[in-house]
């Protein structure tokens, strides 16, 4: 029984490793928006040494995803703001619906990041986007009923 379990876990690990290797290999075909040279430059400046190009790509994709997430959030704020303006001035002529990345929307999308950053270490903007998950026991709603938690 134990042998079969260990075989299953080893097979699962093997599958995971294969999937991870496939993903890393697929990164060689993927062209991130942030070029490799730029990522290498910044990584090298911070002491990151790695000859593997796939890891550079991985970091590039991670950065691209992070920026895309922040920008998507800002875009939603922008759209919400524009729709509110249109509702207020329904009779007047509609302003142009160009979606412009403004400081307002960006700061709204970055607000959560900033607050948690200041909580994580007292230096402002030392690291970016340190969104630590709150431990279950640390949560003020821990141990409460789901109904009371919703309230």
């Amino acid at each position: 029984m134990n042998q079969s379990q260990s075989q299953q876990t080893s097979e699962g690990r093997h599958e995971d490793d294969t999937a991870l290797a496939d993903f890393l290999a697929s990164l060689m075909d993927y062209t991130p928006t942030i070029p490799d040279e730029l990522v290498e430059h910044y990584l090298g400046k911070s002491g990151f040494q790695c000859p593997d190009v796939r890891l550079i790509r991985l970091v590039a994709v991670a950065t691209q995803k992070f920026i895309a997430d922040v920008a998507t959030d800002a875009l939603q704020h922008c759209k919400a703001r524009q729709s509110a303006i249109v509702k207020d001035k329904r009779d007047k002529q509609q302003k142009d619906k160009r979606l412009i990345l403004t400081m307002d929307d960006l700061s709204k999308s970055l607000r959560e990041v900033k607050i948690l950053l200041m909580r994580a270490d007292n230096t402002l903007w030392y690291g970016v986007n340190v969104k630590h998950q709150e431990y279950f026991a640390d949560s003020p709603s821990a141990g409460l009923d789901p109904a009371s938690r919703e309230e």
Partner: peptide, 30 residues
């Protein structure tokens, strides 16, 4: 993503965030 334009300070701030994100990853990994 869908933006048609960007204010210069907003773009600069977002770029700064991207650079700091990169450097944070590098520092943590190192």
């Amino acid at each position: 993503i869908g933006f048609t334009a960007a204010e210069a300070p907003a773009l600069r701030t977002l770029t700064d965030v991207a650079v700091r994100y990169l450097r944070s990853i590098a520092k943590s990994a190192a």
